[in-house]
Simulated assay, not measured.
Amino acid sequence: MTDQIVYVVDDDEDVRDSLQWLLESVDLQVESYATAQAFLDAYPAGQSGCVLMDVRMPGLSGLSAQKKLPDYEIDIPLIMISAHGNVDMAVTAMTQGARTFIEKPFNDQTLLDHVQRALDQDRAQREQRQQRQQIQRRFATLTKREKQVFERVIEGLSNQEVADALAINRKTVEGHRANMMAKMEAGSLAELIQMAVQLGVLGRC
Rank of each mutant, 00 (worst) to 15 (best):
N159P: 03
G187Y: 04
M94T: 05
M94R: 01
H114N: 13
T92I: 09
P105A: 04
D108L: 03
L192F: 09
V197N: 11
A196D: 09
A178M: 10
T141L: 15
D108S: 14
Q160F: 11
R123A: 13
K183Q: 14
R123F: 12
R132Y: 08
V115A: 10
D113V: 08
K171I: 14
A167T: 05
Q136T: 11
M89D: 05
A167K: 09
E127K: 14
F101G: 00
Q160V: 12
E185M: 12
H114T: 04
R177V: 06
R123S: 14
K183E: 09
D122T: 04
R170K: 13
T92K: 11
A167P: 01
D108P: 05
A98D: 00
L189D: 12
Q109M: 15
K147A: 06
D164S: 09
D88Q: 00
T172I: 01
G156A: 11
H114W: 08
M184Y: 11
Q125H: 12
E146T: 08
A93M: 01
N86G: 03
E155V: 04
E174W: 12
Q194P: 02
F106A: 04
A118L: 03
A90I: 00
R152G: 01
F101P: 00
R123N: 11
V115P: 07
A140V: 03
D122Q: 09
Q160Y: 11
E151Y: 14
A190T: 15
L119D: 07
A190E: 15
Q128A: 14
R137S: 15
Q194L: 11
D113W: 07
V173N: 09
Q134I: 15
Q131P: 07
I154Q: 06
A196I: 08
A167H: 08
K183V: 14
F139N: 07
H176T: 02
R126I: 10
V173S: 07
S188V: 05
Q194Y: 07
R145N: 04
E127I: 12
T95I: 00
R117F: 10
D88W: 00
Q194F: 04
V149H: 02
E146I: 10
A163F: 02
D88C: 00
E155K: 11
M180Y: 06
N169R: 07
T143K: 03
Q96G: 03
Q136V: 06
N179C: 09
V149G: 01
G156H: 10
S158W: 08
R145F: 03
